[in-house]
């Protein structure tokens, strides 16, 4: 009973936040609605006892991706007028796509309505889905998993290589040179005769 209540509460918030993402006029508000959507969907996953996925969703998307997103959105002065021009033109297409996706989901559920299990049996008390996920990822799917990691690494290297540029005349500090300086390079002791009294 309580679980259903929590589910409907957070599901409502999730849908509301998702609508907010596309309908709010301020891009920073839209990004914040997206954060709210991520957090509420994490709550729904935790409700399904998938706590690893829920926490990782918050950690990766809310903690890292959306922070950078907000950072960029706040830095750029996004022209709101320009963004709103396309809205009505693309709205019919968006509605068609949304209806198509909803129809597909409905069709799948309709054709399998007899086969859906009423309620998944609860796993044993000492069951840890973090462990279960790791056991699958590093055995059965280890090649796919490592391949995904390599692709991400290549993407990082490519992003850096594309944006890296060497400019002449940059007066950046060479910190290793600064650290490596010795007294002899900087200070010179000169011995000279004292000047005669006038």
């Amino acid at each position: 009973m309580i679980e259903a209540g929590i589910f409907y509460l957070f599901a409502t918030v999730l849908v509301g936040a998702a609508v907010g993402v596309i309908s709010s006029r301020n891009p920073v508000h839209a990004a914040l609605f997206l954060v709210l959507a991520f957090v509420t969907s994490a709550v729904l996953w935790i409700l399904l006892e998938a706590e690893f996925l829920g926490i990782v969703l918050v950690l990766v998307y809310v903690g890292a991706v959306m922070v950078l997103f907000l950072f960029v959105v706040m830095m750029l002065n996004v022209n709101i007028e320009k963004m709103r021009v396309g809205f009505t033109r693309y709205a019919p297409l968006g509605i068609i796509v949304a209806l198509a996706v909803a129809a597909e989901i409905g069709y799948v559920i309709w054709t399998r309505r007899g086969q859906l299990p009423e309620k998944q049996p609860l796993p044993a008390d000492n069951y840890s889905n973090t462990e279960a996920l790791g056991a699958v990822l590093y055995t059965d799917y280890v090649y796919a998993f490592e391949l995904a990691a390599i692709i991400l690494l290549v993407a990082i290297v490519a992003a850096i290589a594309l944006t890296m540029r060497q400019r002449a005349g940059v007066k950046a500090q060479d910190i290793s040179a600064q650290v490596a300086t010795r007294r002899q390079d900087r200070v010179r002791l000169v011995s000279m005769d004292s000047e005669p009294r006038q």
């Binding site: 690893f52 809310v62 903690g63 950072f71």
Partner: peptide, 25 residues
Amino acid sequence: GIDAGLLYVLALTSFGVYGVILAGW
């Protein structure tokens, strides 16, 4: 005593930055 305790701590400490960013904005 959840199993993903360390991840939970990491996720929540990463959440704290929102207060600072939003306050500034």
